[in-house]
Amino acid sequence: MKYAFSTLGMPGTPLAEAAALAAAHGYDGVELRAHPEESLHSGSPATDRTAAVRAFAAAGVGILTVAGYARVAAEGPDEPVLDELRGLTALAVDLGAPYVRVFPGGGDREPSAADATAVRRLAAVAPFAEREGVRILLETHDSHRTGADAARVLGRVGHPGAGVLWDVLHTWLGGESPARSARELTGHLGYIQVKDVASAADLTPLSLGCGTLPLAEAVAAAPPGGWLCWEYERRWYPGAQELPGLLTSGREHLAGLVRAARKEAAHAE
């Protein structure tokens, strides 16, 4: 398996510092939060993009994802959303990132209407993304929280330029087991976001293994050789412990879960 963390866990940190931290703590990649609050987003000039590429190359760390905030199931005209998706894809191309993260954002819309909007927009942009060597990943989140919700959309899109980012917190909050999430997302999965929290009532981020999420089951269901990305949501919980001091223990916890899953699988053969 390969390991990454999201810069959502260290808001405002310069990208060169994030790359150096990843290298120092044994991570293979970083998921970049692409938001105007941060130093790099779809409106950033070419010089900033080039500087980011150089910083990550110097650290020997990959840029896994451009984590954008486009909401593909939201009400409103398509073109602004499609423009946002194209801009995020262009940023991913410039950074050499294979993925762009998007949200559903369907709100309180009727599920069939939200699905139809998401399908239409993803189907429109997926061929462009694939031609550019990028895959648009719909995160299991908000209006489409479970693997079944996301698969319902991606099955209708039916294009390899679109897939799913499995956020284990949201599928758990949606009452879906990791085994079922994995089954639902077969053929659609890009990679898995892991995290940990105390309970459904307290989503303050915790170090991996210190909370209640079924991480062992999610890791066991992960395809071999894929990515596990730790999304530590300190941006939304500024009182949480700072991420850099947790990075090594977090990666070691994931590596231990991977070893245990491999051992269990070998015994089952």
Rank of each mutant, 00 (worst) to 15 (best):
Y3K: 08
F5H: 01
T7L: 08
T7C: 06
G9H: 01
G12K: 03
L21M: 05
L21A: 05
A23D: 01
A23V: 07
A24I: 00
D28G: 14
V30H: 08
A34E: 02
P36C: 04
P36T: 12
L40P: 03
L40Y: 04
P45W: 10
P45K: 08
T47P: 03
D48L: 13
D48F: 05
T50P: 13
T50V: 12
A52V: 02
V53T: 15
F56E: 12
A58K: 14
A59F: 08
V61E: 03
A70L: 03
V72D: 00
V72H: 03
G76A: 06
P80A: 00
G87I: 00
A90F: 04
A92H: 11
A92S: 13
A97W: 11
P98H: 05
R101Y: 03
V102C: 08
G107F: 10
E110I: 05
A114S: 12
A118K: 00
L122Q: 01
A124E: 06
V125T: 06
P127G: 01
F128H: 15
E132C: 12
G133C: 02
R135P: 03
R135Y: 08
E139M: 11
E139S: 06
T140R: 14
D142Q: 13
S143P: 10
S143F: 08
S143R: 10
H144C: 10
R152K: 08
V153E: 01
V153R: 01
G155I: 07
G155Y: 05
R156N: 10
V157S: 02
H159R: 12
P160I: 01
V164C: 15
L165M: 08
D167T: 08
V168D: 09
W172M: 05
W172E: 03
G175C: 08
E176R: 01
S177M: 10
R180E: 15
A182R: 11
L185A: 05
L185E: 04
T186M: 13
T186D: 15
T186R: 15
H188P: 12
H188N: 07
H188R: 09
L189W: 09
I192K: 04
Q193I: 00
A200R: 15
L203R: 12
L203V: 07
L206Q: 13
C210N: 14
C210T: 14
G211W: 01
T212W: 06
L213Y: 02
P214C: 14
L215Q: 12
P223G: 07
E231W: 08
E231T: 06
Y232L: 00
Y232H: 03
Y237K: 12
Y237S: 13
P238Y: 00
A240E: 06
L243T: 09
L243F: 11
G245L: 11
L246A: 05
L247Y: 12
T248G: 13
G250I: 09
E252R: 06
H253R: 09
H253V: 04
A255Q: 15
V258D: 15
A260E: 14
A261E: 04
